[in-house]
């Protein structure tokens, strides 16, 4: 288990940055798919939620009209793929009036300097 409580984020093999909110587009779903597949292939994957991507973590989401699948079951499934490193932009969280209590999974909020370091220290990064 990787200790993420440390103030210096521990890099994984792959960082997936999620910047798009759920439902409105397919970005979040397909970004999470890449994270899940990489993890199924044995890569250690970390996720960073930035901007409106933070809304992916909001509690109380449901399926959309016509049964459009939400991304919240995918997020709940991360644990089964051993993806347990979830970072979130602290500024993005504040700007949206959200706190960790509003989110469905435990996350590590990062200040801007830590986010820069996060990107610098990961060998591979994909942004969705």
């Amino acid at each position: 288990m990787i200790d993420v409580s440390d103030s210096r984020p521990v890099p994984q093999d792959l960082l997936v940055v999620l910047r798009h909110p759920p439902h409105g587009t397919h970005w979040l779903r397909e970004g999470l798919d890449v994270a899940l597949v990489a993890a199924a292939f044995g890569q250690r994957v970390g996720l960073l939620f930035q901007g409106d991507g933070i809304y992916a973590l909001l509690k109380g989401q449901q399926a959309g009209p016509l049964g459009q699948k939400g991304t919240h079951p995918q997020l709940a499934m991360l644990e089964m793929y051993d993806i347990d490193t979830l970072w979130v932009s602290a500024r993005g969280l504040n700007e949206r009036g959200l706190s960790a209590d509003d989110l469905m999974l435990p996350v590590v909020p990062l200040e801007a300097s830590a986010m820069v370091e996060l990107l610098q220290r990961h060998p591979h990064t994909l942004i969705f």
């Binding site: 910047r19 901007g51 801007a112 820069v116 990107l119």
Partner: peptide
């Protein structure tokens, strides 16, 4: 803003 947050 997102780029600037991640820009080293």
């Amino acid at each position: 803003q997102d780029v600037s947050e991640a820009f080293g």
